[in-house]
């Protein structure tokens, strides 16, 4: 009797055990691909972090080199009156090329997609497109803006603003809504030029795009991070 009881009990235990083992095995086999994916994901994340670190390091390096170069230029140009002019010219050129951070009065324009599309027939018109940015920047330049940036990307003479699906690429960097356009110049002039009746901002507002314009006394615009390459253009002798 005792023997039978033990046997039955062990049988039940083994039954439960095998059910558990089978369920577990099937769970593991069905999720093996997912495990693989998370592994690959971790690897990718790892390499992204590593590259970012490398980039930061290279950027730091660049900054120290630039500082060194500036110092060298300073020492080279302080020696004489003539080189003083060269230094001033150099600074001027660097500012024009967008190689220096600049500060001054100006305006900040924020463009956002419409929360409710006013024109149901053409939903696209209630979004901010790259062409809208180009128009606004053009209007700003026309009104005498000295430096312009969009979401921290300096607009220089080689800047391209292109459409890349649901985002916009400026200087090959991705930028997205909301677009914050900073412009340095006479804030009165810039403001007046933009809010002119029948102007481009009016059109954007009609389409439902949220536009905020703010006059500011101090605006800082970052420098251009790219390089100018001249492969084909040569100076005429």
């Amino acid at each position: 009797m005792q023997e039978k009881k033990i046997a039955a009990l062990l049988g039940i235990m083994c039954f439960m055990l095998t059910v558990g083992i089978c369920v577990q095995m099937r769970t593991v086999t069905s999720t093996a691909s997912r495990m693989g994916r998370t592994y690959a994901e971790n690897e990718l994340r790892d390499s992204v972090l590593k590259w970012k670190e490398k980039y930061d390091l290279a950027y730091d390096n660049l900054e120290t080199k630039e500082a060194k170069l500036d110092k060298l230029r300073e020492t080279a140009s302080t020696s004489s009156e003539a080189s003083e002019n060269v230094k001033a010219g150099l600074e001027q050129n660097n500012m024009a090329l967008g190689f220096t951070e600049v500060i001054g009065s100006g305006i900040t324009i924020t463009l956002k997609d419409a929360e409710v599309a006013t024109n149901k027939l053409d939903l696209s018109s209630s979004l901010v497109h790259y062409s809208d940015l180009i128009e606004v920047i053009n209007a700003l330049k026309n009104a005498g803006a000295e430096a312009v940036s969009v979401n921290g990307e300096r607009i220089v003479n080689v800047t391209a603003i292109t459409c890349a699906g649901n985002i916009i690429k400026i200087n090959n960097e991705k930028v997205g809504v909301p677009f914050v356009i900073n412009a340095i110049g006479s804030s009165e002039k810039l403001y007046g030029a933009l809010t002119m009746h029948g102007g481009y901002i009016d059109k954007l507002k009609e389409d439902g795009v949220t536009v905020e314009i703010e006059k500011k006394d101090t605006i800082t615009i970052p420098k251009y991070n790219g390089v100018y390459k001249f492969e084909y253009a040569k100076v005429v002798e």
Binding site: E3, K4, I6, A7, A8, L10, G11, I12, M13, C14, F15, M16, L17, T18, V19, G20, I21, C22, V23, R26, T27, S30
Partner: peptide
């Protein structure tokens, strides 16, 4: 006796385990 019941339990368990839903 004990081993027979263990084997029966294992076989039954394997059959049931193959047909139960997978846990998360």
């Amino acid at each position: 006796m004990i081993y027979i019941s263990i084997i029966i339990g294992c076989i039954l368990g394997a059959i049931i385990g193959m047909n139960t839903p997978v846990i998360s």
